[in-house]
Design a protein around this nucleic acid. Structure first.
Lengths: 218, 218
DNA sequence: AAATAAATTTAGATTAGTCTAAAAATATAA
DNA sequence: TTATATTTTTAGACTAATCTAAATTTATTT
């Protein structure tokens, strides 16, 4: 069995390798986990001993098949628990991350599968992130963001790239939740600030905000 | 915040003090937690520093108000999760203890209260143990067991004093689950083995088994 | 009440995970 | 291509929780 700490490292490495880099750097992991590079080096050695990552000094790490499986199964747990918290316990989408962060480590095959069934096999979590299936297959977002749209284009909100409480809270106030229909009315050339229509209401949104909102064109 | 380990010590001390002893002994705690007396002494000192227990060398420990509150709230969590696992995820009553043992430490007021509401404020867990309310009040069983009954008496099963998988499994095979009606037909004088009626079926049950089955007389 | 047994505590060591500070390797710039 | 900056690793120390073995205290016998 792996400790919570080991699991968190694997998850961090998994997420960092999604961007396609060959060899995730020590510093990047330290940043993500709010720890020090020296601690990361220590842990990486341990994970390498357990064949969860492959590692060569100074060259960064990559997950092995075994390591990836563990990471994906934790992400599966995390996202299923988020669905549970929002759909069954009526939490809001900006409240569930930290709780799911703890629940995800209760990693029993049977519990996960029962939960999945209880929730009726959801495909996405409350932030639009895809939930890996029980074999570890995961649909990756195409990642078209609101900021990619041109004036006049219409789309539907399907996810977010930033999960902070403040961002999610802000989106909710603008009614920019999953499933919301948006239409771009106007784009400021200087800084790409957008004027858009959400539920027939005009909203002004910065590039910083629009580039973190994943949409699907109509 | 308290660590999982600290919480497990508090829970163990709470359960051991239910029998009414003044000063729970180091050895008893070590037994309960499958650890060594010397480790217990170390932890007790730490808990005493945090004002969670009162402790005098060689005299055993007692929970303070603060320590009792923590212990009861963990027990509340544990039992609510057990209800969830059995009623919502269709686990059997002999499967839920270990999972609840992990879930109980995710100790957020809001989560507990939402779960309680979702489950419609249950009063007992799947083993018949009372669930403390949100103020920490807990109904204590009167603890009449099947072994206390005399020939001819009828009763209903309301709980168990022993939570091992093998015992719970055995009971289920005999249909001796919560709510089952029993009638004592015959008691062997020598070893108190009982012949009883459960759902009109005859069952022979040892004293070892009958004294761990909590019942309520009709 | 002295002798023995049992329970409890102390002393010192161990493991997991972390840290700081210094050393080594790699990347970047002049 | 030598010098400088950045990244990564090593060395050594720290904390939480545990352990073994020895010492101490309390309880039980005789």
């Amino acid at each position: 069995m792996n400790s919570f700490t080991e699991e968190n490292y694997l998850k961090a490495i998994y997420k960092l390798s999604l961007s396609g880099v060959q060899g995730v750097s020590t510093n990047a992991i330290a940043d993500k986990l709010a720890t020090k590079p020296s601690s990361v080096t220590d842990m990486i050695k341990k994970l390498a001993d357990k064949k969860l990552v492959s590692y060569q000094k100074y060259q960064g790490v990559n997950l092995t098949k075994k390591g990836r499986d563990v990471a994906v199964s934790i992400i599966r747990n995390h996202r299923l628990w988020e669905v549970f918290l929002v759909e069954k316990l009526n939490f809001k989408w900006d409240e569930v991350h930290d709780l799911a962060e703890e629940l995800e480590h209760i990693n029993t095959h049977k519990l996960t599968e029962r939960l999945d069934e209880f929730l009726d096999f959801p495909k996405f979590d409350p932030h639009g992130d895809p939930i890996p299936d029980k074999d570890g297959n995961i649909i990756q977002h195409k990642d078209i963001t609101l900021s990619d749209l041109k004036t006049g284009e219409k789309a539907v909100v399907v996810g977010v790239k930033e999960h902070s409480k403040s961002y999610l809270n802000y989106l909710e106030q603008l009614q920019l939740v999953l499933g919301a229909e948006v239409e771009v009315k106007d784009i400021v050339e200087f800084d790409a600030t957008m004027r858009i229509l959400v539920n027939n209401k005009q909203v002004i949104i910065s590039n910083q905000a629009s580039k973190n909102l994943i949409v699907k064109k109509n």
